[in-house]
Design a protein around this nucleic acid. Structure first.
Length: 436
DNA sequence: TCATCTGCCACTTTTGAACGGT
DNA sequence: AACCGTTCAAAAGTGGCAGATG
């Protein structure tokens, strides 16, 4: 991984995705509020990452003021409505698994973060409408702090306990289908289930870096662009959903959240009441171990499911047999999943030479097994890559990222991709400033 | 002492390779 | 030879727990 700020000092340090906030951002003269270049990205700064794009206006009117975020988790809130900011008229996004999110939100969503990276559950899954079926778009996701506080579980609820840690280098997850046509994105819900969260500030995998015990909210960005590498952005839309706010933790604090996760997440099936790894069974196994060898447990239910069968009624719609998040999806409708790992190929070089020269060499590579079909309406099968930039200085109302530990050399070097490929999904850092 | 983090565990699901049949 | 379905093993993902850490 590379650190673009180091590679390209001319890019500066501010990669704020949010719009300037007249009144709150002293660096932004109110006179400019009439028309700023959304998303407050100086697009040339991103040329090295997003080249060869369809030209279109990046200017848009200042958005209306958005409602404030909910003050606390686990409390009754006004009916959540997605908060939108965009220059893509007619485009709308809806949270596909909103009911599940609401269920978690009503308790106070917690997301486990680990050094190795942990997936989000529930994952952000959205349906999009209003796209130009022929145009190509990128789908991005990032996670931003909701406020400037650190939180603590007080037995029954989360309460603020001091100031937030300094902001970490922001990263953005690029949906592995990106770029794809509007028709592709609208064909089925778009899932970000592969996004991983980590608390490792030096994470080399490109996962989204968060502080534990802080409140965050995912944002989803839709960028009209022909390719990942483009000259101009053809418009941007950003969305966030109040019910997706969560507190990052290294271990679950609220037992109700644990129950919900176990009930809804198929990977946690083993912890369900009728699972073989439920507390009762585990205790029994321990007792048996003390007396007799183990195989009894394995035979307890034979080779199939335990009596009564698996409890699938709690999947909550986040994971279903036909879940678009879960393969197999119709090959016509979905691109070939990116390989689990692998480095940039020669073909990738031919297709994206800039990614190996002027731009960081870890830009996405094309999956060689996927035939190129630029006019087929199918997405280019880019596999994972990620970019990382340092957040811009202050002005956000949150602490600017302190220069954390120096980035390892592979952040700074050019040349061949020095790390294990990070897996599906790509990451791009766009800044430290909250959008609203 | 306490809150928080980390590593390991046992489990399930997912994924892709290998294989055999048509 | 190509295609399809099944089987199997490895990889990945899950929460719990005990011990480590600050």
């Amino acid at each position: 991984m590379y650190h673009p700020r180091e590679l390209y000092p001319s890019l500066g340090t501010g990669y704020r995705l949010g719009p300037p906030q007249p009144g709150t951002d002293s660096s932004f003269p109110p006179a400019l509020a009439e028309g700023y270049r959304y998303p407050d990205l100086d697009t040339p700064k991103l040329d090295c990452f997003l080249s060869g794009i369809e030209a279109a206006s990046c200017t848009l009117a200042a958005p209306p003021a958005l409602p404030p975020l909910p003050p606390a988790l686990g409390t009754e809130q006004a009916p959540p409505a997605p908060e939108v900011l965009h220059s893509l008229p007619g485009v709308s996004l809806s949270l596909d698994n909103r009911e599940l999110w609401k269920e978690f939100s009503s308790v106070g969503t917690e997301m486990i973060i680990t050094k190795a990276g942990r997936r989000m559950f529930p994952a952000c899954r959205v349906s999009v409408t209003g796209l130009d079926p022929e145009a190509r778009y990128l789908f991005l996701l990032d996670v931003v702090p909701v406020d400037g506080a650190r939180y603590r579980w007080q037995g029954r609820r989360w309460e603020p306990s001091g100031k937030a840690e300094p902001r970490l280098p922001d990263r953005v997850y690029i949906h592995p289908d990106s770029p794809a046509t509007g028709a592709h994105w609208m064909r089925q819900p778009v899932s970000f289930h592969r996004v991983k969260l980590t608390n490792s500030t030096l994470d080399p995998h490109g996962h989204l870096i968060l502080h534990s015990m802080h409140k965050y909210q995912p944002r989803i960005h839709l960028v009209r662009a022909a390719q990942l590498c483009s000259q101009h952005w053809g418009g941007v839309a950003s969305f966030r959903f109040p019910e997706t706010t969560f507190i990052s933790v290294t271990a679950y604090q609220n037992p109700r959240i644990t129950q919900l996760k176990i009930a809804a997440n198929p990977f946690a099936k083993g912890f369900r009441e009728n699972g073989r790894n439920c507390k009762r069974e585990r205790d029994a196994r321990v007792k048996r171990k003390l007396r007799v060898p183990e195989p009894i447990a394995a035979e307890a239910y034979g080779s199939g499911d335990p009596p009564g069968g698996p409890c699938d009624s709690t999947l909550g719609g986040d994971v279903r047999e036909s879940d678009p998040e879960q393969p197999p999806a119709p090959r016509e409708a979905a691109p070939t999943p990116a390989p689990r790992c692998g480095g940039p190929s020669a073909e990738a070089y031919l297709l994206h030479p800039a990614a190996f020269h002027g731009a960081p060499s870890h830009l996405p590579t094309r999956n060689p097994s996927f035939p190129e079909a630029p006019d087929s309406g199918r997405p280019a099968p880019y596999s994972a890559a990620f970019l990382e930039l340092q957040p811009g200085p202050g002005g956000s109302g949150y602490p600017a990222a302190a220069p954390t530990a120096p980035f390892p050399s592979h952040f700074l070097q050019g040349g061949p991709f020095p790390l294990a490929y990070p897996g599906p999904g790509a990451y791009l850092d766009v800044g430290s400033k909250p959008m609203y």
